[in-house]
Design a protein around this nucleic acid. Structure first.
Length: 523
DNA sequence: AGAGTAGGCGCC
DNA sequence: AAAGGGCGCCTACTCT
């Protein structure tokens, strides 16, 4: 069962739909107007658990969450339209940007239920019996529900622990919002080292200061200056570090984004062209490692944090069906068999080669490694190289489930960098497919956690974090593994490629001790 | 004063 | 270890 929902202020129009998207009940459409939006949805969800069809989850769902109502499934017309429009090259204004203030809701533009219904039926027609596209639409929509719920629930975050960290690193918080003591001290020391006043935050001033010391720089980036023998260098690097902490995740950030020991970034599904989520405000998807020590579970609770190791190479293996690459991706460490096949067992080289082929590395060494990779894994390499060549010709490429990349801008044809475009399309096919796999995992896991005491609290490209009562952790860990398996079957059928989840159960999200062995990398 | 760009950093 | 893809966010600085 499906129900079209068109909110109009506190009222809403509800239309029951058959599977094909036509209104139920034939000549007398099952249309209903309610002035209790939240109550009506709750009742229908309880009884039928339909797929809700609505214009924009990010605008509608926060109201339901505020009212204590959650729904299992939906079809987000805006997100699906963005996918369909990109596929056909329809020029659309990138639709309405999501309402970035969850909980706040302005008056609805008076949406016309008839027009919304027509949109849905047009989308259904366009999707047709393309199973991949059906899956993509469902996964994208499920993701929109998860995103709204994660913003609503928030990530458990100890403000006190973070304050202690800030105090230890920056000194006591200045009451007037001025520069923290540790930064003032470093600024003075840097100036002393250069023999005159230098603002370490100004690349131009730093370049000039080094020039006066007889050191010519084209950039002041950390890796450029790290090995320079000058007393100001370590001070500058330290200043960069602390200054970043202060400006990006300092006290002001804490005040703005953490309330009630929950960090609530706004997630924006589909905002990245590859289908990855973006986040707006607070740096939700760029939580620096040091900050994660303050992500602490509630009393009696813990985190189950799982990430898909070596996701993109495994995706390439599954997409290509390359027998040797599939075999390599059937093991716990994909790089080891690749190393054995092509690089005399040199795992580091194998990894450089594989990442290089995914990203389109151009440096000298990567090229020769690529040749060796191609010799033993020709079909895997061909998948990305064909995508790269298509990009260089100015063509559009698609992910496994059918998400299209944007076309080159009009002026590209005269002035564009063909190789850059090739690198983009090369990476797109893999990154976008990886995003689809992760979205399928998220959707499936969300279903498994439905009506449990566990909540999804974080999702970042290839990683998911569940906050749950201590006793539930083993069960949740199993659910994550099962969800990964479901995602794999949904997308790739009975492939021999494995997508192992590296799962940690810990009250602290920031795993302090570096793992002694194997993978510390993300890809 | 506000918008836009570049440099820098950090997340996957 | 970096490189190559995708992002967001901060500061400095320039343009309008």
């Amino acid at each position: 069962m499906k129900v079209l929902l068109v909110p109009q202020g506190n009222r809403a129009v509800l239309i029951r739909l058959d599977e094909d998207g036509s209104p139920s009940g034939g000549s007398s459409p099952a249309e209903e107007v309610t002035d209790d939006l939240v109550g009506s949805v709750a009742a229908i969800e309880r009884e039928h658990a339909p797929r809700w069809v609505w214009e924009d989850t990010s605008r509608i769902y926060p109201r339901l969450l505020d009212g204590g109502v959650r729904v299992r499934r939906c079809h987000d017309l805006a997100l699906v339209d963005a996918i369909l429009a990109m596929r056909t090259g329809r020029t659309t204004v990138p639709s309405t940007p999501a309402d970035l203030r969850p909980g706040l809701f302005d008056a609805d533009p008076q949406a016309d239920p008839v027009a919304v219904l027509a949109d849905y039926r047009r989308q259904n027609e366009e999707i047709g019996d393309d199973r991949a596209l059906q899956l993509l639409a469902a996964a994208e929509s499920a993701g929109s529900l998860a995103a709204a719920e994660m913003t609503f629930d928030g990530l458990p975050f100890s403000a006190a622990a973070h304050r202690r960290h800030l105090d230890a690193m920056l000194g006591a918080r200045p009451v007037d919002g001025s520069t923290p003591p540790a930064l003032v001290k470093l600024e003075n020391e840097i100036s002393s080292a250069f023999g005159r006043r230098v603002n370490p935050g100004s690349p131009a001033e730093v370049v000039a200061a080094f020039a006066r010391a007889g050191i010519e720089l084209t950039s002041t980036r950390a890796h450029m200056i790290r090995d320079i023998d000058h007393p100001a260098v370590p001070l500058l690097l330290r200043h960069r570090d602390l200054s970043k902490l202060h400006s990006t995740n300092g006290w002001a950030w804490l005040d703005a984004w953490v309330r009630g020991d929950r960090f609530r970034p706004v997630y924006v599904p589909g905002a990245v062209v590859s289908g990855r989520w973006a986040s707006r405000g607070g740096g939700g998807l760029q939580i620096p490692k040091p900050l994660r020590a303050s992500v602490i579970a509630d009393p009696g609770h813990t985190f189950v944090a799982a990430d898909a190791g070596q996701l993109e190479p495994r995706i390439l293996a599954a997409m290509s069906g390359d027998p040797r690459m599939v075999a390599a991706a059937g093991t716990a460490d994909l790089y080891a068999p690749v190393a054995a096949e092509s690089f005399d067992g040199d795992r580091a080289r194998a990894k450089v080669a594989v990442l290089g082929v995914l990203y389109g590395a151009t440096s000298g060494e990567a090229r020769s490694l690529l040749t060796r990779l191609r010799a033993r894994f020709p079909e895997a390499v061909a998948v990305v190289e064909e995508a790269a060549r298509a990009g260089e010709r100015g063509e559009v490429v698609r992910s496994w489930l059918g998400r299209a990349c944007p076309p080159p801008p009009p002026q590209w044809w005269s002035t564009g960098d063909a190789h850059a475009r090739g690198r983009f399309t090369r990476n797109f096919v893999v990154q976008a497919t990886a995003a689809e796999w992760a979205l399928c995992l998220l959707a499936d896991l969300r279903g498994r956690l439905w009506s449990s005491r566990s909540e999804l609290v974080f999702f970042q490209h290839d990683e998911v974090v569940v906050h749950c009562p201590l006793d539930d952790a083993p069960w949740v860990a199993e659910a994550v593994a099962a969800a990964a398996d479901s995602a794999t079957r949904l997308m790739f059928g009975d492939t021999a490629v494995r997508f192992p989840m590296e799962t940690r159960i810990d009250r602290f999200y920031g795993a302090p001790a570096a793992e002694p062995d194997v993978e510390s990398e993300s890809d």
